[in-house]
Write a protein that binds this DNA or RNA. Structure first.
Lengths: 224, 224
DNA sequence: GGTCCCGCACTTACACCGTAAACTTGAGGA
DNA sequence: TCCTCAAGTTTACGGTGTAAGTGCGGGACC
């Protein structure tokens, strides 16, 4: 009866696996994954750390859940479009999601058990390719190369010592200070690259992404 | 004078940044990076944890050093060969090194300060491309796409729930048990892929690597 | 309405972590 | 011989994940 009202009247909304995971993602986005602890997460939810263990088997299980939510944020390939535009949109969405949650890509390494959103995503991508006429082998090739590129590019991008959103001034400065420490001519090609590109005022490494993506999509089409 | 002999006569060989880093890499390779602690590393070297801080500013500095050593293990592109074979060999070497040190790829994400071996490697690759006639822009494109693919593919490969060396039986079994939990037809394309490929006795995901690599190399050549 | 049960949050405790700060020690140079 | 100083040790502190036990409050039954 007034069960709902009573629940709401309790000092805090009911703790839930979903609520925990969402709060954990928010915290990880803001402060980085290495600073995410059960105690801090509990505090944020107005609860003791140990209460979280009523909803997550352990921290690893929680991280699994977080990764699966992130995967769920990636756009699934649209059904109607041709495979190239479908894969292109999916790749761009995936990169955006991974940039939004920089910790997620580093976690993938150790996630052994894919969650439902992850599986649904994979199934949907494979379905899109098969519908477009890809053989099973060719779909596997295409998926492998595309996902490899998406993850790897974004990983590299995140490793760069500046936030992608602030952009050019930061990287120019950074490249400058890094190069200062060298003997002149020690890394000539690196220096050339820095002067010609990285230190230009409108340089954004992220712009490279679509160049490589299109090169790969062309290559796949030709291989069909 | 007999300084050398005296040093050697001390109960243990002198502690050195290099010796620490090599021991840390061995430990990380064996037990995983998350289990590498200063105390365990000290014990392995016959020394207290705090002694390590005489040679490494802190743990992050030590991890930086480890990553740089790993980078140094990757073959530099040979000078004489044409750029395609040079890049091909480098990519294959990089994948092998990263598989040997699975923790390294996850660490790259947060390394802000590249070490000397890392810089030398980048400079050498860029030099190889520029010598082959690539423009600065085209060299940047090629490097970005190749490295993205190498890291991403290897990351994906490491995320698979089986060691690449043991190969087919493990993944077949794994794919089987994962699929068991689903409603039939829930992930039809995933199931098709599993049956057609992953559960075949001689399936190795690693074989995909060179397919994608060659597709990318072809694409780059055509873009020249 | 009274009773019981049990889910869920809490408390306590433990082993481990990175590292700051103060100490000991032993060899090299003056 | 004494001083200096680099390099290893000891101690300590605040943090971590989580096992184990406690207690409360609402829902379900008699």
């Amino acid at each position: 009866m007034a069960l709902r009202a009573k629940r709401a009247a309790k000092r805090r909304a009911a703790l839930t696996r979903g609520r925990i995971l969402r709060a954990a993602i928010t915290l990880a986005d803001r402060d980085g994954i290495e600073s995410l602890s059960m105690r801090k997460l509990g505090t944020k939810l107005g609860v003791e750390a140990m209460s979280l263990y009523n909803h997550c088997r352990n921290k690893v299980d929680m991280l699994d859940g977080m990764v699966d939510i992130v995967f769920g944020e990636i756009d699934l390939p649209a059904n109607g479009a041709d495979w190239q535009t479908a894969m292109r949109k999916r790749a761009i969405s995936a990169r955006q999601v991974l940039l939004r949650h920089p910790w997620a890509i580093g976690l993938m390494e150790s996630r052994a058990t894919p969650g439902p959103a992850t599986l649904r995503h994979h199934d949907s991508v494979l379905g899109s390719l098969r519908t477009a006429g890809f053989s099973v082998d060719m779909a596997a090739h295409a998926y492998s190369i595309l996902d490899g590129y998406i993850y790897g590019f974004t990983l590299t991008e995140l490793a760069l010592p500046f936030s992608t959103s602030e952009g050019a001034p930061a990287v120019a400065e950074m490249a400058g200070t890094i190069m200062e420490g060298f003997r002149p001519g020690q890394y000539p090609h690196l220096a050339e690259m820095a002067v010609d590109r990285a230190m230009k005022p409108d340089y954004k490494y992220g712009d490279e992404f679509e160049y490589g993506l299109d090169l790969i999509l062309d290559g796949i089409e030709r291989a069909l």
